[in-house]
Design a protein around this nucleic acid. Structure first.
Length: 289
DNA sequence: CTATCTGTTCTGAC
DNA sequence: TGTCAGAACAGATA
């Protein structure tokens, strides 16, 4: 599930809870989740202290006090839960009743990272698209970043960059382009829908069909929506709970996402659902032209 | 039962 | 090179 705001939320939680812990061992319950599966995974991580959690687009990076770091991508259904030695849990990811609040590990737990003080990090993933890999901080981070466009909060995500990109990819569907991580990193299906609604742009348009004022509105809408989502701690509502018991709160007040047939938040009409590039797309035909 | 849905991203065909 | 469908997987839902 996680798009940028969800991963950002996990990162912030982990900076409060996981930093300072020392890795003791890693149990791989499903080899598939370890990208470039390496037999020395355990020895590389054992004894390393977590210095900082970091986010690169939708990738969570757990840095340690040596060149090795962990990179984790949750893809569609991944979830990370940190359980302290007293059993308190924090983390987030895919919101599914099966995941949270039940005994850990369970049938979808793919890896368990245990720290010296007895606390544990559970990597759960129903569909097994997610991955963990161990990296050399310097080189591989940069390599990974090379595949990613600027984030919406990045200075490099300027109006000029945005308009230029629309022009270069003018035949692309605008919504598909927003979700292209090489163009902008961090936007997934939910927030692509939301940003287009906020900018009053029809998701069926081609990138090249946006007028300069429309492009500018969309550029602002992207930043605005993601800022709001981060503030609301992401989208998950069912299962995401932090130490203070707070839940992610974006979805209940979504502008269009998941609101098929319901009244548009901008006019008396109804939200419509179609499919674009294989993805569910919600919009208001009246407000978004 | 079948068909279609799902918050991601990569590959391969055109 | 740009664009898109399909694949990777395991369900839930109508």
């Amino acid at each position: 599930m996680p798009e940028l705001p969800e991963v950002e939320t996990i990162k912030r939680e982990f900076n409060l809870t996981v930093v300072g812990k020392v890795f003791d061992r890693v149990e791989i319950l499903d080899k598939k989740v370890i990208k470039f599966s390496r037999p020395d995974f355990n020895s590389k991580i054992k004894g390393k202290k977590v210095t900082k959690a970091q986010r690169m687009a939708k990738i969570l990076v757990i840095n340690t006090n040596n060149p090795n770091s962990l990179m984790i991508h949750l893809k569609m259904t991944g979830q990370l839960i940190f359980q302290s030695k007293t059993g308190q849990r924090t983390g987030g990811g895919h919101p599914d009743k099966l995941y949270y609040g039940q005994k850990l590990p369970h049938q979808y737990t793919r890896a368990i990272l245990t720290f010296r003080d007895g606390s544990q990090l559970f990597f759960n993933d129903l569909r097994r698209f997610g991955w963990i890999k161990i990296i050399n901080r310097q080189k591989e981070k940069i390599r990974e970043l090379a595949n990613l466009g600027p984030e919406p909060f990045d200075k490099n995500f300027s109006l000029f960059y945005f308009q230029n990109g629309l022009e270069k990819r003018k035949k692309s569907n605008i919504k598909a382009l927003l979700m292209d991580q090489k163009f902008i990193s961090g936007i997934g299906n939910i927030y692509a829908n939301e940003a287009l609604f906020l900018a009053k742009i029809n998701p069926q348009k081609k990138s090249g069909q946006l007028s300069p004022p429309e492009a500018q509105k969309l550029h602002q809408a992207i930043i605005k929506i993601l800022t709001k989502a981060v503030k609301l701690r992401g989208t998950s509502e069912d299962s995401y709970v932090d130490l203070a018991g707070r839940k992610g709160g974006y979805l209940p007040q979504a502008l269009v996402y998941g609101r098929e047939g319901k009244k548009c938040r901008g006019c008396p009409g109804k939200v419509k659902k179609i499919k674009i590039a294989g993805r569910g797309t919600y919009f208001c035909p009246t407000c978004q032209r």
